[in-house]
Simulated scan of single mutants.
Amino acid sequence: MQPRTFYNLHHKEMLFEDVFRNIKSFMEQQPIADYKLMLGTDSQVHPRLTRFITGIVIQRLGRGVWACATKTIVERKMTQLHERISYETSLTEEIASLFTEHHKDELIQLILPHIYDGATFSIEGHIDIGAGKKNRTREFVREMTGRIESSGLEPKIKPDSFVASSYANRYTK
């Protein structure tokens, strides 16, 4: 099995360690800031396959972002909504698992000397589901948010799950 690769507008084939170096470099530029590391997956069913895109976004609140994505193809139409949402969540969990305790500690150590100056760091898991009465995915909210929490991420659903519902969504078409 080949290692998972990531891409963005500037780089076409990054390994996870390249992604991590970019995130760390982005944070090193301004360690006194509010940072959110956000992961999320969206999918699109096509005639012969289902395309999943998982996004990784590091946001310096009010001062920019660095982002990348990775693609997963399932060679069939996944028409069952629960199966697709569950697989999206699994892919987000998989990417979250790449951020080992060592990786997270390295990022925390960047801002730790600056917490009294207002620096913060959080990690979120964005799920492309909503709790609204008209949303077909509302029945999955408890299950999927529980899975994301058990991965050590703060779960976010619509309208706060923009990495899944906007960033990743853009690349599923």
Rank of each mutant, 00 (worst) to 15 (best):
I95G: 02
G62V: 08
I108Y: 10
H114V: 01
F140A: 06
G62A: 04
Q109Y: 06
K104C: 05
I115A: 04
R63T: 10
G132V: 07
K77W: 00
A131W: 06
D105C: 06
L98Q: 07
L107E: 01
S97K: 07
L61Y: 08
I115E: 13
G130C: 09
Q109K: 09
G55E: 04
R136I: 04
K71R: 15
F99R: 03
L98A: 06
W66Q: 03
R60D: 03
G64C: 08
T137E: 10
K104E: 06
V141R: 03
I58S: 00
A131S: 13
G64Y: 08
D128P: 00
A69D: 02
T54Q: 04
A69C: 10
L112M: 09
M144T: 12
T70N: 14
R147Y: 11
I129S: 08
I85K: 15
Q59R: 13
Q59H: 12
E143V: 09
V74K: 08
I127G: 00
E94F: 13
V141I: 09
E106H: 06
F121C: 01
M144E: 14
I58W: 00
E75N: 11
Q80E: 15
P47E: 06
I85L: 14
T72A: 05
E124N: 11
E88H: 09
E101D: 15
E75Y: 08
L81V: 05
I53R: 05
E139C: 11
K71H: 04
V57Y: 00
G146W: 05
R63P: 00
F121A: 02
R63W: 15
E93D: 06
Q80G: 06
H102G: 10
T54F: 03
G125I: 03
L91P: 00
Y87V: 00
E101M: 09
A96H: 02
F140P: 00
E124M: 09
I111F: 11
T145L: 03
V141Y: 02
L81Q: 12
T70Q: 13
I108V: 12
V57C: 04
R138T: 06
E139V: 15
E83V: 11
V141H: 03
I58V: 15
V65P: 02
A119H: 06
